[in-house]
């Protein structure tokens, strides 16, 4: 090739130009670079949370429907995940209308002034991924800021992300200490009838969209 280029100047230049163009095109179309370009996805999710309060006098199970979340992930680097998940306070249910009303009241979650519980994702760590057939499974720890009753505190949660085609599922599990969010309830209730820590687990399912 080099000899031919040397022998025929004009043709050699054309070949060099063509080879360069082909190389550039090949790089542009290489799988690695196309994966980089299309690796950012946005997950538009909806679902529910469950919560459990364990106290010496009472064990309270509850649900929170209407959870919503938008999470932006980078499949080539899941530590670059960002997003937000929120739950409406009005949807918290424990099976007792009186208790639900108290829960939304001023001395508890103050649902009128703070209608949603919010979790803003800051970073993700300890990620491990595997492919189970056509399902991509990722697990790890997500850290962010959790806002309850207008008080924002750092929070970390374990997570499992599953993606299958254009569908995704995110499961989270974490604990919140009521005192950290300035929730005092009525005198003596926390620690006797209501647990000092509330365990939450969430399951959100939705669609996957390409992110520019």
């Amino acid at each position: 090739m080099t000899v031919a280029w040397g022998k025929k100047g004009r043709l050699g230049m054309t070949h060099r130009f063509l080879a360069g163009a082909l190389l550039a095109a090949a790089f542009a179309a290489s799988p690695a670079s196309s994966a980089e370009a299309g690796s950012r996805k946005s997950l538009v999710l909806g679902g529910a949370f469950r919560f459990l309060s364990e106290a010496p006098i009472e064990r309270i199970h509850g649900t929170a429907e209407g959870a919503r979340g938008v999470i932006v992930i980078d499949l080539s680097d899941l530590t670059k995940t960002s997003g937000e998940i929120s739950v409406p306070v009005a949807e918290l249910k424990t099976g007792s209308p009186i208790r639900d009303e108290h829960l939304r009241g001023e001395s508890w979650l103050a649902g009128d002034s703070h209608p949603r519980l919010n979790f803003v994702i800051r970073d993700v760590s300890g990620v491990s991924t595997k492919q189970e057939g056509e399902i991509l499974v990722a697990t790890g720890t997500v850290r962010g800021d959790f806002t309850m009753r207008g008080v924002t505190k750092p929070l970390s949660s374990t997570f499992t992300l599953k993606m299958k085609g254009a569908r995704a599922k995110v499961e989270l599990s974490f604990e919140v200490a009521l005192a950290a969010y300035d929730i005092k309830g009525r005198d003596g209730v926390i620690g006797s009838k209501v647990g000092e820590k509330i365990a939450l687990s969430g399951r959100l399912v939705g669609s996957v969209k390409d992110e520019p």
């Binding site: 199970h61 099976g95 007792s96 209308p97 009186i98 399902i135 599922k169 399912v205």
Partner: peptide, 15 residues
């Protein structure tokens, strides 16, 4: 007073 009780059902999801 409780007016509802939680019911848990096991189902297989789309995943």
């Amino acid at each position: 007073t409780m007016t509802e009780r939680p019911v848990t059902q096991k189902v297989v999801d789309e995943f």
